[in-house]
């Protein structure tokens, strides 16, 4: 029930179903879940949690970029500000981790509303530039504001006790909390993509003037998806701050925005599983190639060039094309 379609030279696998999750996708989700449950017993849990946080971050951006057709180059603003708020809430206010994460996410939602409201008035490259400009303002605020700790960031954030009862000091127990957050986030994003709202979103991505001519007030939809995307990016950032016990300028810096775009493109924009793969590849590279120092950036750059030149649909996009099924 699938087919390949060609527009502007790029190929994409089109879904043809009634909206329920196809069996093979359920299988992939379950396999991922099983892998994630087993993984911390073989691999370093903190590394895995980092992968999961970035996977969620990339999925958040993919919701906006792959399904809303909007390229934000300032998503670090949401990731980073949520990290700061959650770190501050946990450290200074002494709140439990789940409350800190919720507050961080809410902060990103509010920021998403404000930035989104202004950014969606422009399209294409201008939209990207506006989001970048706002993200740089957030970066500057993080550098200057008294509570962010400037260059040092907020360090030694306590992981606290979940619901004030379960200690999160062991990596393993925190791992399963992060697992729940990540999978919850992924399933929520999946549902958004496959909702009546998601359907309108795809129509706007495909042909905005036509969507308008059918009576859709497209800016409201764009704003809504922008806020949702910012919220999930915030959820990822807030969780990351608890995992690493740190919120720093790196989280709000423009290179973070670039990195997550890279993850989405490498994995496969507009696919369900692509951002996960992209995030896993990039984070793994950063971790295992860390000994190369500054060379990591160059290696990343080369991979990006190769992926754009050879497989524009991204890793998962290419696989989806081969098996002729949307992934």
């Amino acid at each position: 029930m699938t087919a390949l379609t060609e527009t502007n030279g790029a190929t994409m696998v089109v879904e043809r179903g009634n909206g329920s999750m196809p069996r093979y996708q359920i299988a992939i989700f379950l396999a991922l879940l099983a892998l994630s449950l087993a993984a911390p017993f073989f691999l370093y849990p903190v590394f895995l949690m980092k992968v999961m946080c970035f996977a969620l971050f990339a999925c958040a951006l993919n919701l906006l970029l792959g399904f809303g057709g909007l390229l934000s180059f300032g998503h670090a603003a949401f990731f980073g500000s949520a990290a700061y708020v959650s770190a501050h809430a946990a450290k200074v206010w002494g709140l439990t981790p789940e409350v800190a994460i919720i507050l961080g996410t809410l902060a990103a939602v509010v920021l998403g509303f404000v930035i989104g409201l202004l950014a969606i008035r422009r399209q294409g490259i201008y939209f990207a530039m506006v989001t970048l400009a706002f993200a740089q303002m957030v970066y500057f605020a993080a550098l200057q504001a008294p509570f962010t700790g400037g260059e040092d960031g907020i360090q030694n954030v306590p992981r606290g006790d979940l619901f004030g009862a379960i200690s999160m000091s062991s990596d393993l127990s925190l791992y399963f909390v992060v697992l729940v957050i990540t999978f919850g986030g992924l399933l929520a994003i999946y549902r958004i993509i496959h909702s009546p709202f998601g359907q309108v979103l795809k129509a706007i991505r495909e042909n905005e003037p036509r969507a308008i001519s059918l009576g859709y007030r497209v800016n409201s939809y764009k704003l809504a998806v922008f806020i949702l995307s910012a919220g999930f990016a915030g959820l990822a950032g807030a969780t990351k701050a608890i995992v690493f016990q740190l919120a720093s300028l790196t989280d709000v810096y423009w290179s973070m925005s670039g990195e997550v775009v890279l993850m989405v493109l490498l994995g496969g924009m507009g696919t369900v599983f692509g951002p996960l793969v992209g995030a896993a590849v990039i984070v793994t590279m950063q971790n295992y190639l860390a000994s190369f120092g500054a060379w990591v950036t160059i290696i990343q750059g080369c991979i990006f060039v190769v992926s754009v030149m050879l497989f524009r649909e991204g890793i998962v996009g290419v696989i989806a094309k081969l098996i002729r099924r949307p992934l």
Binding site: N18, G19, S20, R191, I192, H194, S195, P196, F197, G198, Q199, V200, R217, S220, Y221, A224, L228
Partner: peptide
């Protein structure tokens, strides 16, 4: 009307 219900499955569109 407007389809802002992002929490619902698109199955209802059938």
């Amino acid at each position: 009307g407007d389809s802002f219900d992002f929490w619902r499955s698109q199955k209802i569109l059938s």
